[in-house]
């Protein structure tokens, strides 16, 4: 069991998440980040898409042609 904040020790794990709130890094779809930001939650958005738009055949080709 994680120690409770009342123990006088710094919160850890899920307790810390509840005490401090989540720190969010959003990867991919920006609508998730936008939704959190609209609720005044701090969020860092990483603009990422799957290589070759997610086409597995082109992605395999790219892997062979790229270092």
């Amino acid at each position: 069991m994680p120690p409770e904040p009342s123990d006088g020790l710094p919160p850890v794990g899920a307790t810390r998440l509840l005490a401090d709130g989540p720190k969010v890094i959003n990867v991919g779809l920006d609508s998730f980040a936008t939704e959190l930001a609209s609720q005044d939650r701090a969020v860092v958005h990483v603009d990422w898409v799957p290589p070759a738009g997610g086409d597995p055949r082109i992605a395999r080709l790219l892997a062979k042609l790229s270092t």
Binding site: I58, L61, L62, K64, L65
Partner: peptide
């Protein structure tokens, strides 16, 4: 348009013997 670049990539791969 990205289609030009994908088609070109496939063609270059072919010239390099990669499929």
């Amino acid at each position: 348009p990205l289609g030009c670049f994908t088609a070109a990539l496939e063609a270059v791969a072919e010239t390099m013997g990669v499929a």
